[in-house]
Structure formats: C-alpha cells, structure tokens
Amino acid sequence: MSEATTAKHPRSFLERHHHLLRRLHSLTGIVPIGVFLISHLLTNGSVVWGLLDSRKAEYGHAGVATFQHEVDFIHSIPFLFFIELSLWGAIAFHSILGFYYAKTGITNTGSYSFGGNWRYRLQRITGYIGILFIVYHVGTLRWNWTFLTPGGTAWSAEFAGSTMAQILRGSPSELTVAGVAVTAGYLLGVTSLVFHFANGLWTAAITWGLTISQAAQRRWGYACAGLGAGLMVMGWAAVIGFATLDPAEAKATEQKFRLKEQREAEKIGEVIDRERNRVSAIDAPR
C-alpha cells in the first residue's frame, strides 16, 4: 500500500463511526421524521378534507371541527412529550449531520445541468430552508415566540383552526401584508420539506441498495414522485385552507364543537354515574 494509506493520524468520532452515522442520517430522514411529516400534513390537511365529513357540519365549518378533533386527539396521546422529544432529537441529529454532509460537496449544476444534479442541489437547499421553517414553525406555535407572529398572535390548541388562520392572515379579520408574507413562508417551507422527503426517499433506496437497476430506480422514482405530489396537495391545501378561513367563524365552530364535546362527555359521565349507583345498590348488603 502507498504511504498515504499507512500514514497514522488520530481518527475522529465522526470518522470511526462514519458508516453508522451516515446510515442513521438516512434512516432518521424516513423514520421518524418522514413518517411524522406524512401524518402531520394529513392532520393539517383535515381543514380541507374534513369538509367531506358531513356529520361535522352541524358545528359550522366541518373542516375546522375535524381539525379540532384531530388536534384534541393528538393532545390526548399519553407521553406526548417523549414523542416530541425523540422527534426533536432526530431532527437535530439529521439536520446537524445534513449540514456537515452538505458542506462536503460543491454543486456544479452550471456545467452539468442534468435533472439528477439539480435534485442533488435542491436536496441541500430544501434542507436549509426546511430547518429554518421548522424552527420558525415550532418556535411560534409551540414555544410561543409570539414576537415572530403578525400582531403577536399566539396559537392555541383549544382554538387550533381560528388561531392558525389568524397567524396566516396576519389579523383576526382581513388579510394583511404580514399575513401574506407568513403564508408565503409556509408555502415555501412545506414545498421544500415535501420535496426533500420525497427525493430523500428516492435516494435512500439507492443508499441502502434496495433499487439497483436503472429500471428499478426509475420505478421507485415514480412512486416517490406520486407520494410527493400527494403530500404537496395536502400541505398546500392545509396552508391555503387556513389562510382563507374567517377566524371569527372558525372560532364560533370551535366553541360549538367544544360545548358539544363537553355535553357529550357529561352525558357519558351521567350514564356512568347512574350505572355505578345502580350496581352499588344491587351489591349493597341487604
């Protein structure tokens, strides 16, 4: 072997675990981050697909009611904090390494303007846009960075749709310039992340060696493009759906939904109490 090969130098942590870290980077992009992205866009798209649920129409806006129902469900998941924590860990891991890996390449789409080369470049650009968007999105909606929302609107899980609409529109009533900017930012963020995930799913199949022949790579490419298109529709539907809501009407729906839910919960509680009393009456020693 040549001298360069035998030359000894201390191997860094990244170097010693290169393969494992690379593959974990690929894996975390799909599970949990990608899987979460799918479920998250499906949830948020419910403001539009929820309109199909005619049973929800009695509350006012069926989409808003369905979305509230979804949000309530998520908040009822036990150990939600730990799920969030592992998701955050994965996103931090993937994006820090992603940054570091992106730095190892020098894009050359100017000379080699092939589709694949553009996707390579976009994979990196959308990663950068994606993490900026994620931090803004979670910061403003989850950690209450209201200084970054128009008019200082805080998102509320109880009034999920109406507060979201207010943030995207920039005010409780009409669409403002700030609102247009936030909405455009959301569209860019969602578009970036969906592209990044769909294209990443395509390259991951090469990384792991699932698709080998060019025909297989092409077929998997169509599948990823199909998934990407579906997610894109969901994501855009969600953003545009919220941005075109009337926050006041949405709030009325949410209040009605909450009241009805409470009343139903109370009714169930009454039934349970009645049954319990009946049972204890039977069991009581005569």
């Binding site: 990244l14 170097e15 290169h18 393969h19 690379r22 593959r23 890996y101 190892t104 390449g105 050359n108 080699y112 092939f114 694949g116 080369n117 996707r119 390579y120 470049r121 994979q123 390259t203 090469i206 990384t207």
Partner: peptide, 12 residues
C-alpha cells in the same frame, strides 16, 4: 470515511 456513503446521488 470517503467511501460509498459519501456519494450524494447526483448521478452525474
């Protein structure tokens, strides 16, 4: 490091 995992699938 510098092996196959460093390929970024640009396919140029």
């Amino acid at each position: 490091q510098g092996g196959i995992n460093d390929c970024g699938n640009a396919q140029n």
